[in-house]
Amino acid sequence: MPLQTITLHINGENRPTTVRASDTLLYALRGRLGLTGSKPGCLNGDCGACTVNVDGWPMKSCLMLAVEAVGKKVTTIEGLHDSPIQQAFVKEFAFQCGYCTPGFIMNCHSLLEQHPDADDQTIKEWLESNICRCTSYIEIEKAVKAVMRGE
């Protein structure tokens, strides 16, 4: 399959990279750009471990082709620095093995940007797209709500 060079806008930088037309964004991020924070958990959109932020919205990077991301602003977990939601995850023990954590944080981060005053129903609608197998979700709920309260 022919390769093509595209430029992805990732974490505030333009990153030229060579991909196949059928490469997913997840594959390009991990395999081409060394951004291994986004995790492969199912490769078909079921688990959310690969969630990134595309133009402000959470996106499962295994469900998007790399070529589709051209011209869009992509933020991965590596693009977050000491954000309130990251701090809250640490404080509330909202992770254990840590594998779903980058995807969960990116989803929570997008949620907080889009709906800073989200009610329980909205939080549930957003966060039920990710699976955490270690925690009870109570810890994640506490982390999100702590950020909403501005703690």
Binding site: R30, T36, G37, P40, Q86, V90, K91, G98, Y99
Partner: peptide, 24 residues
Amino acid sequence: RSVIRKEAADKVTGRAKYTDDFES
């Protein structure tokens, strides 16, 4: 005491490495 986990910072920044993250 609820001592913060030693690998916490790595895990919330995507820097924690798992087997598939090692590639050459």
